[in-house]
Each structure stands twice: as C-alpha cells, then as structure tokens.
Amino acid sequence: IEKFKLLAEKVEEIVAKNARAEIDYSDAPDEFRDPLMDTLMTDPVRLPSGTVMDRSIILRHLLNSPTDPFNRQMLTESMLEPVPELKEQIQAWMREKQSSDH
C-alpha cells in the first residue's frame, strides 16, 4: 500500500509539472495564426496569391488538392516561399510568452 501511495504522489507531481509546462498560445496575434486552421504558425510560407500559411497545413492540403485553398489556382510545394522574418517574430513572441508564464 505504501508503494501505491508513493506512486500516486509521483503521478500527481508529474501531472502538476506538465500542467505548468503547457503554455497557452490562444492569444496569438492574428498575423501569427494560420488563416485556414486558426492555429499558431511555426513555419510560415507565402503562397503566390500573397496569403501566408503554416507550411504543415498547406502541405497537408496539397496532398488532397494541388491548389491554393483560397483561389483554387494551381499550387505546388516548390511555389511556397518561406517567410523567415515572420517566423522569427513568432518565435520571439513564443519565447516572451514562455518567460512570462514561468
């Protein structure tokens, strides 16, 4: 029984630690959010139409349809242009958020 109590305490400790580690990014500025999924972008790319999306989301879309989801023009992965300035701004915002939450 004592071992179970210790195990339960350890589990509670881990759960509390994980809860502290989770950071809420739901208040991200609109320009940091993917327009299709409304999630925080981690690897922004510009489509030929000028729309900026997260790379993982547009690549997932391209698996089903080789088109720009906003104007239905033909689109391939090679046409995606990285946006390193925005990526750095997002990373800086995330770092600031992490340091203010801890």
Rank of each mutant, 00 (worst) to 15 (best):
W93C: 02
V83A: 07
E13Q: 08
D101T: 05
K97N: 15
D54A: 00
K17I: 07
S56Y: 05
E77N: 10
R72S: 01
D34N: 02
P29R: 06
D43Y: 04
A8S: 14
M94T: 14
A19M: 14
L7H: 10
V83P: 00
P29A: 04
E9L: 05
M94K: 11
N71K: 01
S49F: 15
E13Y: 15
S78T: 07
R95E: 07
P82L: 02
N64S: 06
K10P: 11
A28G: 13
K3E: 06
S26L: 14
F32A: 03
M53T: 15
K10A: 08
V52F: 06
F32C: 01
L47M: 05
L62T: 00
L63A: 15
L62P: 01
T39F: 08
S49C: 04
D30A: 07
L40R: 01
A21T: 10
D38E: 03
L40V: 14
L6D: 12
I23M: 14
E31A: 10
M37I: 05
D54N: 05
E22Y: 13
M37L: 14
I23S: 09
E31D: 12
E96H: 05
R95K: 02
R33S: 05
M37T: 08
E12V: 07
Q98V: 14
L6P: 10
S100C: 11
D27Y: 07
Q73L: 12
H61L: 00
R20M: 07
A21V: 11
T42V: 07
D43G: 01
E81G: 06
S100I: 14
D38G: 03
P84T: 15
E77K: 07
A8D: 09
L62V: 03
D30N: 07
E9G: 08
I58S: 01
D43V: 03
D68A: 00
P35Q: 01
D30K: 15
N64I: 09
S26A: 12
I90S: 02
T76G: 03
V45G: 01
E12S: 09
K17R: 12
R20P: 13
S100Y: 07
S26D: 15
K3Q: 05
V83I: 14
K17M: 14
K10T: 12
P82S: 15
D38V: 15
E81Q: 10
E12T: 07
E13A: 12
D27E: 12
P84L: 13
Q91L: 10
D27S: 09
L6M: 12
S56P: 08
V15W: 04
F70V: 01
E9R: 12
L80I: 05
E81A: 10
Q98R: 15
E96P: 05
E77Q: 06
I1F: 02
D43Q: 02
K97E: 15
D24L: 04
K3H: 11
L62M: 14
D38H: 03
D101S: 05
I23T: 13
P66C: 07
L59R: 09
R55S: 04
A8L: 10
S49G: 05
E12N: 03
L75Q: 00
A21D: 14
E85D: 11
P35L: 06
M74V: 10
K97L: 04
S78G: 13
E88G: 15
D101N: 09
T51A: 08
M37G: 02
S65T: 04
S26P: 06
R95N: 06
M37K: 02
P84Q: 08
N64V: 04
R72Y: 02
D101Y: 06
A16V: 09
Y25F: 13
F4W: 06
H61K: 03
R95I: 09
E22R: 07
D54H: 02
R95W: 04
N18K: 07
F70L: 01
P35F: 00
A16P: 09
E9T: 08
A19L: 02
K87R: 12
P69T: 00
E96K: 13
N64E: 06
A19R: 13
D30E: 12
D24N: 06
V52A: 05
E85A: 09
L6Y: 08
I23R: 10
E22L: 13
H102Q: 09
E77L: 03
E77D: 07
M79F: 05
E22A: 06
E77R: 08
P44T: 01
S49A: 15
S26N: 15
N71Y: 01
K97M: 15
D68S: 00
E77T: 07
F4M: 06
Y25N: 14
V15S: 13
P66L: 09
V11G: 10
L40G: 04
R95M: 05
K3R: 07
A92V: 12
I1M: 10
E81D: 11
E81K: 13
V83W: 11
S100R: 09
M53L: 15
M74Q: 08
F32Y: 11
N18S: 11
E9V: 07
K10E: 13
R33A: 01
A92I: 03
F4C: 10
E9Y: 14
A8V: 09
G50N: 03
M74I: 11
D101A: 08
F32V: 01
E96G: 11
M41S: 00
A21K: 05
S100G: 13
E77A: 05
I14F: 15
I1P: 02
S78K: 11
D43H: 07
Q91D: 12
K87E: 10
K87Q: 14
D101I: 06
A19T: 13
L47V: 15
G50V: 00
A19V: 11
Q73K: 09
L7R: 10
M74G: 05
K3S: 05
K10G: 11
I14N: 12
N18T: 09
S65P: 00
M41K: 01
E96N: 06
P69L: 00
M94A: 13
M53K: 01
T39I: 07
Q98M: 04
E9K: 09
D68Y: 00
R33I: 05
T39Y: 03
D43A: 04
V11Q: 11
V11F: 02
L40Q: 03
W93F: 14
L63R: 10
D43C: 08
I58F: 01
T42L: 09
S26R: 09
W93K: 02
Q98S: 06
I14L: 13
Q98P: 14
E13T: 03
T76Y: 06
Q91H: 11
V45L: 02
M94L: 14
E88V: 11
N71S: 06
Q91N: 07
E77V: 05
M79K: 06
K5T: 08
S99T: 13
Q91K: 10
E96D: 10
E12Q: 14
E88D: 11
P69A: 00
T67A: 02
N18Q: 05
K17Y: 07
F32R: 12
S26K: 15
A92R: 06
E96L: 09
E77M: 06
L63I: 13
S65A: 04
A21E: 14
E88K: 09
D27Q: 12
A16R: 05
E22G: 06
E12K: 12
W93S: 02
M79R: 06
T76A: 06
N18M: 07
A19D: 08
I58V: 04
Q98L: 10
G50E: 07
S26C: 14
T51N: 12
